[in-house]
């Protein structure tokens, strides 16, 4: 092992880290990766390409991507306001952003369902417009926007902080409109961070369970998310099937994160 620093403690801390990572992350995930092959490759493939599974994966990844896509402009707006503007209550508002991280997901799910159900505060207001949120894929989207928002804001905030104001001013002096400054100067500088935020919100949304099952409706082929299907398979004592789906989700998530990382490196 090479260590470029003269500081002590490399062996000790590396030992602790490796033990910790192995015990809590690697060994358990290895168990997950071993289990599906009881079915053989064909069995594994068949079990993750059932129409119902594909529909669930499509919903989980589609809704998570859409939610992340909504969260990027929304998170950018909120981060911008928090960093660039001073207004009364800013600190409290800034703290509230972390609410979805601090609030238990099941509680969030129950609360969102109560809000958007036909009899709920918001559900009642939206019903005359013909918009149904609870028990539809829209409900899944809503819950995922909720859980993903802080990831985008927290990742973008420090980058906005470091953004040199001179560049914007220069652009303004050169006669650029506010919109042009935003599009040509600010956005390119923020793009890598926005992409990271998108990836983090997406990764979080794909696996989300607690807040979604209450509001989703859980109809096969329509509003059934992939993690629920894992639970259903588990309850049918189909361990290998549950592990297969888990592995497939993990693989897809990983591929997406890798792609995002690569895109980012190209940008930077």
């Amino acid at each position: 092992m090479t260590r470029r620093s003269a500081l002590p403690g490399f062996g000790l801390t590396l030992g602790i880290t490796l033990t910790w990572v192995s015990l809590i992350v690697l060994i358990p995930l290895a168990a997950l990766m071993l289990r599906p092959w009881e079915l053989g490759f064909a069995g594994f493939w068949a079990s993750v390409t059932e129409p119902r599974v594909l529909a669930a994966l499509q919903l989980s990844f589609g809704a998570a991507a859409l939610a992340a896509a909504v969260n990027v402009p929304l998170g950018l707006l909120i981060a911008w306001v928090m960093v660039r503007y001073r207004f009364p209550g800013r600190r409290i508002a800034d703290a509230v952003i972390d609410m979805p991280l601090a609030l238990p997901t099941a509680v969030a799910g129950i609360a969102l369902t109560a809000l958007f159900a036909p009899k709920g505060w918001l559900g009642e207001a939206l019903a005359p417009l013909g918009i149904k949120v609870a028990y539809t894929p829209l409900g899944v989207l809503m819950a995922l926007i909720f859980v993903g928002l802080p990831f985008v804001v927290r990742i973008v905030e420090p980058v906005i902080q470091d953004l040199p104001v001179d560049a914007e001013e220069a652009a303004a002096v050169l006669g650029a409109t506010r919109f042009q400054t935003l599009r040509r100067v600010v956005l390119p500088a923020l793009a890598p961070a926005l992409l990271t935020g998108f990836g983090a919100a997406l990764a979080r949304g794909v696996g989300e369970y607690g807040s979604v099952i209450f509001i989703a409706g859980n109809r096969p082929m329509v509003s059934e998310i992939a993690p629920l299907l894992i639970v259903i398979r588990l309850e049918q004592l189909n361990y290998a099937g549950a592990a297969s789906l888990g592995l497939a989700m993990l693989a897809i998530s990983f591929a997406i994160l890798l792609t995002i990382n690569r895109l980012q490196r190209r940008m930077a």
Binding site: L29, A31, L32, Y209, P227, I230, L257
Partner: peptide
């Protein structure tokens, strides 16, 4: 990695072990 693993899987792995 655990951030991008579904909580359901995070429970499942311990049952598998």
């Amino acid at each position: 990695l655990p951030f991008s693993v579904s909580p359901v899987i995070s429970g499942l792995v311990w049952v598998l072990l």
